[in-house]
Design a protein around this nucleic acid. Sequence first.
DNA 1: CTGAAAGCGCTTACAG
DNA 2: CTGAAAGCGCTTACAG
Lengths: 336, 336
Amino acid sequence: MHGSRRVKIVDVAAAAGVSVTTVSHVISGRRPVSAATRARVEDAVRRLGYQADPSARGLRTQRTDTIGLVVPDITNPFNTELAAGIQAIAYARGLLTVVCEAPITGGPRLPAVLGQLTARRLDGIVLGRFGAQRADLDLIAASGTRLVRLGTRIADGPGDVVRGAETEGMRELVRYLAGEHGYRRIGFIGGETGVEPGGERYEGYRQALAEAGRTVPEDLTVWTGFTREGGRAGAARLLDAAEPPDAVVCANDLIAIGALDVARQRGVHVPGRLAVTGYDDIDAASMVSPALTTVVNPAREIGRSAARLLIDRLDGDDGPAREIVLTHQVVRRASA
Amino acid sequence: MHGSRRVKIVDVAAAAGVSVTTVSHVISGRRPVSAATRARVEDAVRRLGYQADPSARGLRTQRTDTIGLVVPDITNPFNTELAAGIQAIAYARGLLTVVCEAPITGGPRLPAVLGQLTARRLDGIVLGRFGAQRADLDLIAASGTRLVRLGTRIADGPGDVVRGAETEGMRELVRYLAGEHGYRRIGFIGGETGVEPGGERYEGYRQALAEAGRTVPEDLTVWTGFTREGGRAGAARLLDAAEPPDAVVCANDLIAIGALDVARQRGVHVPGRLAVTGYDDIDAASMVSPALTTVVNPAREIGRSAARLLIDRLDGDDGPAREIVLTHQVVRRASA
DNA sequence: CTGAAAGCGCTTACAG
DNA sequence: CTGAAAGCGCTTACAG
């Protein structure tokens, strides 16, 4: 049932009439080989369909040619785009990418997942937004696995960083609400407290209000979860306030979509009586109605940059830690 | 422990005062070990933080403990759910899952991706919906990699199959439109012709009309692409027909969402003047308004079943090829 | 119940 | 420009 005997490097050597040393070098290109010999070896490789055994190679080289992406939610469209960006770059380099989920609550927790991945001796790990413990990060770094963190600050731990300019993006969005549009009571619905990108985005909201000479209306700030459910709960709370908001800034699009649900259900017109904004610009942002005013989070490009950074490191770049910041872009649609 | 020397099995053996053979057997549980010895070894493993090198193990066992999922579009929510289902089962078994994209058009093509994966000696592959060549499939099977195909028929190639009851699901949906609801002119917007799951779903539509003693209104059938854009183009065509439809059945949710766009833009009330239905029940289906009436495609459950099937095979099940069919479920919301 | 040793299939110093 | 051989870190017959 299982195919014939796998062809190995000795078979190729025999077919080409050379040593396995030479076959190996033809394949890797790591030392000069005469044109004639090279041709014979390449021909044998092709004829026999030889593909080196990755376990044997990995045992020798101490490399797995595999990198990992760890995210809290594999079905979140932002993370999916991220994965697509990483894969595009990694695939071209012959690196395999494994995407692992470590939910914030429920399911295998982050330390357990990171443990699995270091056990697998991955060459590098891209760590999606997380409230990761410093100890977890140090464990990765200590294991020799290269690390790229997403959406946090370079000072927060080992490894390189790629992030969007989130504070700036949110500041511009809220500046637009508070200035041009003249909304007076602007509330905020965040995700889980302490989980990025909540802090960055809240900070942008705060700064924009401060610029406009206002303070954060504490009674209009709620922290829930980065989900549609969270948005529903948060919006319900805000609309029940003694003095309800005329605009609500949400920490991501899913929360905003939940807020839209509540507004529709209660007959609150958007944006007439309540403006609603999101963050990320996931596909659904333009599918709901009214379509969401939001900020583009360049997920795919973040993924590409992270993969390039990782590959540089694997190629021996041992320079100081780097931080790559990608620009934001506000998208005005119908909801605000 | 600055990424210095990795601890290996000899270190554990030395620390526990036993042979590496015994350490290996304590870990694998493949032969009896006295309780006292076992305790000492387990203690040493814990103290030293030992994790077996997967390359070394793989070289010996000829296993990679890794499975692959290949899909045409990694950002499609259906495929994401599929991946989540597979991973949940695989992770619990200590199997790593790699998700690879092989676009129908553009990007690395299917044979190239399958080549990469067989080179990696994956233990098993789950192949998402595809117009895969028989030769590609035979290549996988011949390499000893176990194969599960999704959404096709068992007779179409080697390996096992998992699929939803799509013809049945669509038949029930259209039966509901044509019977209970009394829609008279029911149009159909399909994706690319010849690409699954288009055929299955069209067939269900056709059967339901036949049951109701009607024929397919040829002027109300259009084939575009499985995207929101495709839905817009298709709906525009149908609404421009000499005798427009009062209901339009779409081959998936994205198409239906595009149809909703066109209806809104033209001021055609849904479902009052035009009913719209989708298929898959992706997250966005309940986010748009009116919320989509659609059919649940149990993506996550399909993933779970595929992973279980694969694991059975890896555990030595050499029985005849199996086909698992999962039931459908119509979800009635506001759009029809 | 336990251990010594072969060998999985590569890559890479070392040698010519 | 090329080859013989060591060795990467495990698992598993084989032996006691």
